[in-house]
Amino acid sequence: MEIIDRLAEILAVHRGREGALLPILHDVQAAFGHVPEASYQPIADALRLSRAEVAGVVSFYHDFRDAPAGRHVIKVCRAEACQSMGGADLIARLETALGVKLGQTKGDVTLEAVYCLGLCACSPAAQVDGQLVGRASVARLEALVAEVTA
């Protein structure tokens, strides 16, 4: 019931907006930490779409989660500029240090790949709970993770 009420509020905010589905999904994810399957049909009804169309959009975009991430999300860039500055090695060592593989969650911590944060002139780059990190090192990232999980 709680999902339905909160969803109704979100849908009301976007009523009549051109191409409202992505903004709605962003708000739903911000509210629930993921896009719950229970939200598909109400969203579809509000936008006069089929449930399949909503599901298709949710599954297309990397940002939309079907289950909540850990309380803390660490994103590390895999793209070329970061690779040129040891990004692949950084990821491997971070996986060992945190005991979690890329794309997985362990306890409170989710480790994910990101494809470019636009910090290519201060590579390698990462993001810890929204905080951007340039010239990233394992030590710096470990310290930040310890700080946010403390």
Partner: peptide, 25 residues
């Protein structure tokens, strides 16, 4: 402002238009 959702392909103009319209990119 419209915010993307982590799909590189949406930098391609026709894909971006579909995304803007609320569709798969």
């Amino acid at each position: 402002v419209r915010v993307g959702a982590g799909a590189y392909i949406c930098g391609e103009e026709t894909s971006l238009l579909n995304s803007l319209e609320g569709k798969r990119g």
